[in-house]
């Protein structure tokens, strides 16, 4: 009886959230997977008469169908390029700024706010501005970055940016995203640096370590859990990114298509719920590949520490 008394109040406390998460997260994930396996038909008007035709066969054939289309493979490739550049960019700038601020510059608060500020701008608003900055117009009609390059006498560097017909064009789409989220990564790293006591640096200096060696062998190893968290957070944001791309490139862009923008057109323009569900499930699987090993890793380290 006394054992019941210890776990019962705890259970009563978490039950509502277990039920809510069970229904609204896992229940709906299950519903989505179920939808993705459905067959469906499409009704349309041909020659002023309504006809109904099969659209999807159902079952795993739906997955084969989506994954085998060239457009979806193109979107997945775009996502890979975007994620890689976005991750490297935010980690690089985040760490760089954190190290600079951590060295104790004057007016640190001002710089910290400046670097963090882009995060306060909504991605839609940022997307509208970056659409103009990254306009592909060149020569007499150049605006945005291309015009700036002309003014600087660097005409040869003008580019079509993300609109270019290139396998790597999505690297440019990562630029606004890096601008927006590097400050966040910086804040994470800065917190990490602040968490390391000064004693350790003092000790290293007394032992004759150079500044570089202090960072390399004393500070950075202690930041690796933070770096991993930052990677996971930025990585899954990149895969779910929709608003920025939609605001920059519109709904039907091909050069800038990623699975999330395809999902919008599948759902709202095509009215094709089955394919949108297949797409969502594939995306969930991709994010899971990234997040699940991280969860296993953190569980294991917590257990070892505890």
């Amino acid at each position: 009886m006394s054992r019941v008394k210890t776990w019962l109040p705890g259970l009563a406390l978490v039950t509502p959230s277990i039920i809510l998460i069970g229904v609204f997260v896992y229940g709906l994930i299950g519903q989505n997977i179920w939808n993705s396996l459905n067959s469906s038909t499409r009704r349309a008007v041909v020659n002023q008469e309504i006809v109904e035709r099969p659209l999807h066969d159902g079952g795993y054939a739906n997955y084969v169908k989506l994954l085998s289309t060239a457009d979806y493979q193109h979107a997945l490739w775009n996502l890979l390029v975007l994620t890689a550049v976005f991750l490297i960019g935010t980690m690089f700038f985040g760490l760089l700024w954190a190290v600079l601020l951590e060295k104790g510059v004057k007016a640190e608060g001002v710089f910290r706010s400046i670097y963090l500020f882009p995060m306060a701008v909504s991605m839609i608003a940022a997307g509208i501005v970056w659409r103009w900055l990254l306009s592909p117009q060149q020569g007499g009609q150049a605006i945005g970055l291309n015009q700036l390059l002309q003014r600087l006498g660097l005409d040869a560097l003008q580019s079509s940016w993300w609109s270019a017909d290139s396998r790597w064009n999505m690297a440019w789409m990562a630029v606004p995203a890096i601008w927006q989220l590097s400050g966040y990564v910086m804040a994470l790293f800065l917190a990490g640096f602040r968490g390391i006591s000064d004693d350790q640096r003092e000790a290293a200096r007394i032992d004759g370590a150079s500044e570089f060696k202090i960072y390399r062998h004393v500070l950075f190893p202690q930041l690796s859990p933070i770096a991993l968290s930052a990677l996971i957070i930025i990585g899954h944001m990149s895969m779910k990114m929709f608003d920025l791309i939609y605001a920059l490139a519109g709904p039907n862009s091909y050069v800038a298509s990623v699975p999330t923008t395809l999902m919008w057109t599948q759902m709202f323009n095509q009215g094709d719920r089955v394919m949108a569900a297949v797409n969502a499930t594939v995306l969930l699987a991709i994010v899971a590949v990234l997040v699940v090993p991280y969860l296993i890793y953190t569980n294991r380290t917590e257990r070892n520490q505890g």
Partner: peptide
Amino acid sequence: LAWLDDISTATAKFYS
């Protein structure tokens, strides 16, 4: 709408 969406996507691809 669905057909227009397909045409628009094809056109965007063609434009690049």
